[in-house]
Amino acid sequence: MGTYKLILNGKTLKGETTTEAVDAATAEKVFKQYANDNGVDGEWTYDDATKTFTVTE
């Protein structure tokens, strides 16, 4: 398990959240659902060194 971070750079929603997941693929699924639930759809990037996903609208 590891802690993964999501940085939201949406047009109307900005912020950060974290999740505990077994791997990056699992964290990505959780974060994409979170972003979708909050109406954020954009370009995704992932930094393996910091376990950080970023979505920018």
Rank of each mutant, 00 (worst) to 15 (best):
F53W: 08
V40G: 02
T54Q: 07
D41P: 04
Y34H: 05
T12H: 15
T50G: 04
W44M: 04
N36C: 04
K51R: 14
T54R: 04
E28H: 12
K32R: 13
D48C: 04
D37Y: 10
N9A: 09
K5G: 03
K32A: 07
T45M: 14
V55K: 01
Y4A: 00
T17S: 09
T50H: 08
Y46N: 01
N9W: 07
T56M: 07
T18R: 11
T12Q: 10
N9P: 03
T19C: 05
W44V: 02
Q33S: 15
T3P: 06
T17Q: 15
M1A: 10
G39L: 13
T54L: 07
D37E: 12
L6I: 04
E57H: 06
K29R: 13
Y46K: 01
L13M: 14
G42S: 02
V22A: 12
Q33M: 07
A25E: 10
A24N: 07
E20Y: 09
D23M: 03
Y34F: 15
T26E: 07
K11R: 14
A49F: 07
K29T: 08
A35W: 03
G42M: 03
T56A: 08
Y4P: 00
E28Q: 11
A24S: 12
A21I: 02
T12A: 10
L8R: 02
V55C: 05
T26C: 05
N38I: 06
A35Q: 02
T3G: 06
Y34R: 03
A27Y: 00
N38H: 15
Y46V: 02
L6N: 01
F31I: 01
V40P: 02
T19P: 01
T50A: 09
T3Q: 07
V30Q: 08
L8N: 02
N9I: 13
T52N: 02
V55G: 01
D37P: 01
K29I: 15
G10I: 13
I7H: 06
Y46G: 00
E57F: 10
E16N: 03
E16C: 05
Y46S: 01
E16F: 09
T45P: 00
K11G: 10
G2E: 12
T3D: 06
N38L: 06
D37L: 09
Y34C: 03
K5N: 07
T12P: 04
T18Q: 10
T45W: 10
L8G: 02
N36L: 14
M1W: 13
E43S: 07
K29G: 09
G2C: 06
E57D: 11
K51Q: 08
D23W: 03
K51N: 11
A21R: 02
T54V: 09
A21G: 04
M1Y: 12
V30E: 13
Q33W: 06
A49E: 12
A21D: 02
A21T: 09
F53D: 00
N9R: 12
K51M: 09
N36T: 10
V55Q: 01
T52L: 05
D47L: 04
Q33R: 09
E28R: 06
G2Y: 11
Y34N: 02
F31P: 00
Y34L: 07
D48W: 14
D23T: 06
G10M: 12
K29D: 09
T45C: 05
N38F: 14
A35V: 11
N38R: 15
E16A: 08
L13A: 06
T12W: 15
I7A: 04
Y4M: 01
E20V: 11
A49K: 13
A35N: 02
A24C: 06
D47A: 04
Y4D: 01
A25W: 12
F53I: 01
K32H: 10
N36W: 10
Q33I: 12
K29P: 03
T19L: 12
Y4G: 00
K11Y: 09
D48H: 15
V55R: 01
D48E: 14
V22I: 07
T17A: 14
N9V: 07
I7F: 07
N36H: 13
D47K: 04
A35I: 07
V30T: 15
N36V: 14
G10S: 10
E20H: 10
